[in-house]
Nucleic acid binder design. Structure first.
Lengths: 214, 214
DNA sequence: AAAATAAAACACTAAAAAGTGTCTTAATTT
DNA sequence: AAATTAAGACACTTTTTAGTGTTTTATTTT
């Protein structure tokens, strides 16, 4: 007969798997992906590396499972959605500034985003796709109809702004702190970036409004 | 007496150093930094790795010398500068779109920029600083005076746009090709991004103009 | 409570990568 | 042209990292 997996207080497969997954996060945060070696992960988890092979098949699969276990984008979409009678202007602004704060505070998301620029990997494709699907809601449902003929232009603008948010957050604190003279490590600097994001959205909507009134 | 370094056709220190430096570029382009191991570099250069220790001290110093040898930003500032009687509007647009094209085409610059997000390293600090100094010209000489009280806001906007340019170019072709539905691998997509960059600059200048006329 | 088995430690082998010692010879110096 | 020395090849050692076989014992099953 099939035997239950051990779930005791000393030997416990599920708990150990969790420990490995947590260890990936810890190592990623403390050492970056350079540290994501099987020996390091096992040492961090405090369990023999052989279990990584047994439970996941190897480091790669463990890492994939870690990435998939992190629902990075779920927190981005959260929050109360304001009334939409402005073509999504306020929602766009909120979405960008929230995204800035969220990425700024989530060191591991930064690492994952960075990783997505470095290496082809199915789980990273998945993350990228999730972000894309997630954003598609705002774009196709709200802003595309509003911007009509300029919908693609608005999308391009959003692509630039969101990318900028990502890059600036990954940039700070590694080899430099300032970008175009803005100190990204200071609150004043990040406020300026967020204000600039809002300002740009306002300008784009303002422009669209005046075109509509022609 | 001090002896000249050998400069023959078979044994030639300077030429070999060049070969190593070139090899770093080649490996970076073909394999990314994962491939930047002393054995790989030496094999690519076709010279024994011991020479890397002799000439540079080790892989790290060789890589630093490679990074420093590449004057990545020199090509960005190049090109005819248009007349400036518009507060730098045309120059800003040109600078952004040129920068987009330049980064898009320069795979190794992308790798270096990416590297700069990953690892603290003096030569990477230097690159970041060079970019900053380089951009400071346009900002402090031309746009700061024009935007006066809004100068910092304009800087923040530029920071976002330039960062966006970097990120989007690094993003494409690894784990995804589209961002906000824009296909960055197609010319249509990159044209849309460049148009969006120009559009945003126009909007910002337009806004500044109308504020001045109050 | 005894038997069976999964969880995990321990100790090992294998592979990859870094780093070094020695010898050969091309190029320079005398 | 002989002597000297730097350039580089070659073979080696060391270190790091990945991967596996064996044993112990906690937990489950009978």
């Amino acid at each position: 007969m099939e035997r239950k997996p051990a779930a005791g207080s000393i030997r416990n497969k599920e708990r150990s798997k969790e420990k490995f997954l947590d260890a990936v996060g810890t190592v990623l945060e403390t050492e970056g992906f350079a540290g994501l070696k099987i020996n390091t992960i096992a040492a961090t988890a405090g369990i023999d590396k052989k279990m990584i092979y047994n439970y996941f098949g190897g480091t790669d699969q463990l890492i994939d499972e870690y990435i998939n276990s992190q629902d990075f984008w779920s927190n981005v979409k959260g929050g109360e959605i304001p009334e939409i009678n402005d073509g999504g202007q306020e929602l766009s602004k909120l979405s960008l500034t929230q995204q800035f704060d969220y990425v700024a505070q989530n060191k591991n998301l930064q690492k994952i985003l960075l990783w997505g620029l470095m290496e082809e990997r199915s789980s990273l494709k998945h993350i990228a796709n999730e972000r894309e699907v997630n954003g598609e809601l705002l774009l196709s449902q709200i802003t595309d109809p509003y911007f009509a003929g300029n919908a693609t232009q608005f999308r391009a603008i959003m692509a630039i702004l969101i990318s900028g948010i990502y890059y600036l957050n990954m940039y700070k604190g590694i080899n430099a702190d300032t970008f175009c003279g803005i100190d990204l490590t200071k609150q004043q600097g990040t406020d300026e970036i967020k204000n600039a994001l809002s300002k740009l959205i306002d300008l784009v909507y303002q422009d669209q409004n005046s075109n509509q009134n022609l």
